[in-house]
Design a protein around this nucleic acid. Sequence first.
RNA 1: GCGAUCGUAGCUCAGUUGGUUAGAGCGCCGGUUUGUGGUACCGGAGGUCGGGGGUUCGAGACCCCUCGAUCGCCCCA
Length: 448
Amino acid sequence: MAKTKTPQAIRGTQDIFGAEAEAFAFVVETFERVRKLYRFRRAEFPVFEKTEVFARSIGETTDIVSKEMYSFEDRGGESLTLRPEFTAGIARAYLTNGWQQHAPVKLATHGPLFRYERPQKGRYRQFHQIDAEIIGAAEPQADVELLAMADQVIRELGIEGVTLHLNTLGDGDSREAWRAALVEHFRAVKDELSEESQERLEKNPLRILDSKDRRDQRFVADAPKIDAYLSDEARAFFDAVTSGLDAAGVKWKRAESLVRGLDYYRHTAFEFIPDEGSAAADALGSQSTILGGGRYDGLIESLGGPATPAVGWAAGIERLAMLVDRSQAPLDLVVFAEVEGFEPLAFEINRLLSQGRGYSDSENLQVEYLYSGSLKKRYQKAKSTGAMRGLVVERHDEAICQVRLRDLNVDRERPVRNRVEEALAEHFELLETKHMNAHTWVLVERRK
RNA sequence: GCGAUCGUAGCUCAGUUGGUUAGAGCGCCGGUUUGUGGUACCGGAGGUCGGGGGUUCGAGACCCCUCGAUCGCCCCA
């Protein structure tokens, strides 16, 4: 009979385990904690939408729409797409659920996104983001609050050497005037630009500004600046954002050539980027932006809604996870039976110890119960778990059993004995004895 | 979509200019040893050398195709 072949995972997907999974969870937990402090409301959204939700809002010419969406037809022949980003779907939800009634509404979510791209360091086909949006607020104070929250998430993750890069794209008119000036500027030197930038000249001229090609960078330096094209309103808006950040104690840096990839952005645009030469920059390779976003006042209109101001950001969980250092907390105690037939009793005791007993997380014991292998193996495994001490369940002729606390890896100090005794005493009549160096309790009978 | 590097036991890898039954360490299982017991010793299971085709008397090693991984470009979190 032919052996069944194991199917492979889909390219660009990942199975996360061990320290990486702990780091991933830590990022999400930290985000959840901080968003509550800022009173952002948790929301959940479908991972797929009608294709037009993304096609109309993101911009038909962007690469995301033209070649990076995971799209397919359902049985009714309708084109659906796995979400490549959060914002468009959230805007759709805002309209179809009538969330105007809550405006301005502060939303937070996280989950998987999908982009049909070649995987590389810090980039996957299924990746995960945390996301925060404020919809229905036109005030620059909304940008400030959103950025302050982002800054706090990064700081509470313990990530160092990352700076907020900030720019404004102006309002619609400012942006168009600037864009026209840029096209004119670069068209004059078109033949000397890189091949990619010659393409971009027609499709997405703003993108030339952050080209990595040296040939382009010569001309980027003296390219027209957005500041010269800002309307008075747009300038006042940006000033209000920056002075708000200063007042809030959020450090930032002006990045005149920072533009966002998607069409719908207006006014504030920002990215949190590791500083040159920092440990964070090394860890991330060429995928350096860990959090990005901006104001997208035009988006909701493009989905058929009323003109609605909004700001938001998203951050790659995998990228953040690469910058935090998390391993599993050390194990305090392993519990196992030393005599065959005492396994159920050992598990009963294990359960007493791991049950929530009203302690805070830092006081609760991490306990693992061993049941497999020969008795010798159990000792071997007990040690290799790294547990500080072992609780061994032994036979006792005149009582239920005898429980002995033994040292395994005593390089760490963590008081365990009182906690164990307390848990046991709640359910058993105890007789405490000293036996050699080890602490021993005889479990005489169960309490009623 | 483009480019570079890579793909040998569960894991990390070695396999000399192509030459007899493909190896090591770790892990796993068993035995002996060890009277706080992850040690030491002995033994065992486990590999269509990513897959397909070709060159050759002979290929894990050379060529082509394909799949996958890693890193970079485009783009982007």
